[in-house]
C-alpha cells in the first residue's frame, strides 16, 4: 500500500535520527554531542532544522547542512531546510561529559573550563592533561590548531603533540 504523503516522523524521532550524524572534522562525536544541532520544527509540511556554528567561519557547517538534508531525504522527508542560528552563541559548555571522554580517547584533550571562567579564553587551562598518558606536564605549541576549535599542545613526558579543544 502506498500513501499519498510520506509518514511524517515526529520532531523527537527526527532529533534521534539526526543525532547519529557525526561531526565532519571529528567523527567520534555527533553534531548533537557537540551542541551544533539546535531546533527541529515542522512548519506545516516543511521541516526546519536549525544549527549553530562553533566558530563563525567553521567550514564544516556547509557539510553538516548537506549531511542533514541527505539523511532526511533518505527517510522520505524531501521538504526540509536547514537554517543557521547565532543566538545563543555556541559554547563548549554544551559538550556532554560523555562526548568529552570520546574526544580524549580519540586523542583530543577536551575543553577544561566552563566558558564562564575568564581563564578559559585568555590563560592556560588549569588541569590540561595529555590525552594519551594523562600527564599534566604539557606545553602549548600554538594557540591555533588544525581546525578553528582547537589549539596545539605537546606533552613533555610522553613527548607526543596533541590537539586541545579550546573553550569558548
Amino acid at each position: 500500500m502506498t500513501t499519498a504523503f510520506p509518514i511524517l516522523l515526529s520532531e523527537e524521532e527526527i532529533r534521534k535520527l539526526l543525532s547519529t550524524i557525526p561531526d565532519p572534522e571529528i567523527p567520534v562525536i555527533t553534531i548533537s554531542d557537540l551542541g551544533v544541532l539546535r531546533q527541529i520544527q515542522w512548519n506545516g509540511d516543511e521541516l526546519e532544522v536549525s544549527i549553530t556554528p562553533t566558530y563563525s567561519g567553521c567550514p564544516a557547517m556547509k557539510m553538516i547542512e548537506q549531511d542533514i538534508l541527505a539523511l532526511l531525504k533518505e527517510k522520505g522527508i524531501e521538504k526540509a531546510k536547514v537554517v543557521l542560528v547565532y543566538s545563543p552563541a555556541w559554547t563548549t559548555d554544551w559538550i556532554s561529559a560523555e562526548a568529552k571522554e570520546k574526544l580524549r580517547v580519540y586523542g583530543i584533550a577536551p575543553p577544561q573550563h566552563t566558558s564562564v571562567d575568564k581563564g578559559a579564553l585568555i590563560g592556560k587551562p588549569k588541569h590540561l592533561a595529555c590525552p594519551r598518558c594523562k600527564s599534566e606536564h604539557v606545553e602549548m605549541i600554538s594557540q591555533f590548531g588544525s581546525t578553528a576549535c582547537k589549539a596545539l599542545y605537546k606533552c613533555l613526558d610522553c613527548l607526543e603533540p596533541f590537539d586541545y579543544f579550546k573553550c569558548i
Binding site: Y55, S56, G57, P59, L84, S142, F144, S146, A148, L152
Partner: peptide, 19 residues
C-alpha cells in the same frame, strides 16, 4: 604554526563577514 594561526583568524573574520 603561524601560517595556521593567520588562516584561522582569516577564517573567523570571513565567517563574520558572511553572516
Amino acid at each position: 604554526e603561524e601560517d595556521i594561526a593567520m588562516a584561522n583568524i582569516a577564517l573567523d573574520m570571513i565567517g563574520q563577514a558572511n553572516a
